[in-house]
């Protein structure tokens, strides 16, 4: 019953998000959609995916979209009430409709042959260095996929950095000490939560992406409260931030190469050292992910000044 309502809500919100011509509305609906999808992951007993979806899919992606919207000129495609669908419109309807049908039939075909990899994962879990099967897959059995994910994130940030245009000043300056005091009080707690999520990843849901998202929001709050956070004007800090951007991918690849020399193959670790290597990779990855995500949102803030980052 609950699942049926959830599925219907997700479908309705997705449809609305695509259909609406108001960009702001579309973003708000997208954020709500992300939260519902996170709930759906929880119902599917995948708390790792749910945490990542809520923090990154709904939280940071929503902030990014909202910040980009403020920099865009007012535009909204208006559709005349009685407008008829043109020939080209029908063409797109047909094309996407056919693709949708193909997708549905493909998914229907999958359901008939259920193959579970869980027995294989459980059989080799003791060699992976961690006790949580999801972390074992992400950081050991399929480590290359995770390394490439990190590389994609880095690539996206590099592309965004090149496109940076100083924005218009539209944010109202916030006065008062409430935000500053609250951020000062909450910051140690946020760092603690980030470290806890990272540490927990070896035995329970959690890990680098979730921890990185918490770190990113901590940094963004520092910036919003106009506290002296990470400023690129100082030379040492600038180098540190640049190293942080590249750190996750670099550490991952170096450890991966080390595996070649130790005879475990690229991205493989000897079972007795696996736990330590995974912790090292996850720490570097969490820092990198936090810095990259926060940088992405910061740069798209309207009153962002060049040189702060």
């Amino acid at each position: 019953m609950l699942d049926a309502i959830l599925t219907l809500l997700i479908l309705a919100l997705a449809w609305h998000c695509v259909r609406t011509t108001d960009l702001f509305e579309a973003i708000v609906v997208f954020i709500a959609l992300g939260m519902l999808v996170a709930l759906a992951w929880t119902r599917l007993q995948a708390p790792d995916a749910a945490l990542a979806e809520a923090a990154i899919g709904a939280g940071l992606a929503g902030a990014l979209l909202l910040a980009s919207l403020r920099q865009m000129p007012e535009m909204s495609a208006t559709r005349a009430p009685g407008a008829k669908t043109t020939g080209l419109g029908w063409f797109w309807w047909g094309l996407w409709g056919a693709l949708g049908l193909a997708l549905v039939s493909g998914v229907a075909a999958i359901q008939t042959t259920s193959v579970s990899l869980m027995p294989q994962v459980q059989a080799h879990l003791s060699d992976s260095g961690v006790t949580h099967p999801v972390t074992a897959v992400l950081l050991n059995f399929r480590a290359l996929d995770t390394a490439l994910e990190l590389a994609v994130l880095l690539w996206a940030w590099m592309a965004q950095k090149q496109l940076f245009v100083p924005g218009r000043q539209t944010v109202y300056p916030l006065q008062g000490q409430v935000l500053k005091t609250a951020v000062k009080a909450l910051l140690p707690l946020m760092v603690l939560v980030a470290v806890y999520l990272l540490w927990r990843g070896s035995s329970a849901p959690g890990g680098a992406f979730q921890s990185g998202a918490v770190l990113a929001s901590a940094w963004l709050m520092l910036w919003l409260a106009q506290l002296p956070g990470l400023s690129r004007k100082q030379g040492g800090m600038r180098l540190g931030i640049q190293a942080g951007w590249l750190g996750g991918v670099t550490v991952f690849l170096l450890v991966g190469l080390l595996g070649v020399f130790q005879g475990a193959g690229f991205m493989g670790y000897p079972p007795d050292q696996a736990g330590a290597w995974i912790l090292l990779i996850e720490s570097a990855a969490a820092l990198s992910i936090g810095l990259l995500l926060a940088s992405m949102v910061l740069v798209s803030m309207p009153d962002f000044q060049e040189g702060t980052l």
């Binding site: 916030l174 008062g176 409430v178 935000l179």
Partner: peptide, 10 residues
């Protein structure tokens, strides 16, 4: 409390 303070200020 923090969020409603910020919205109110804005």
């Amino acid at each position: 409390a923090l969020v409603s303070h910020l919205i109110g200020q804005s």
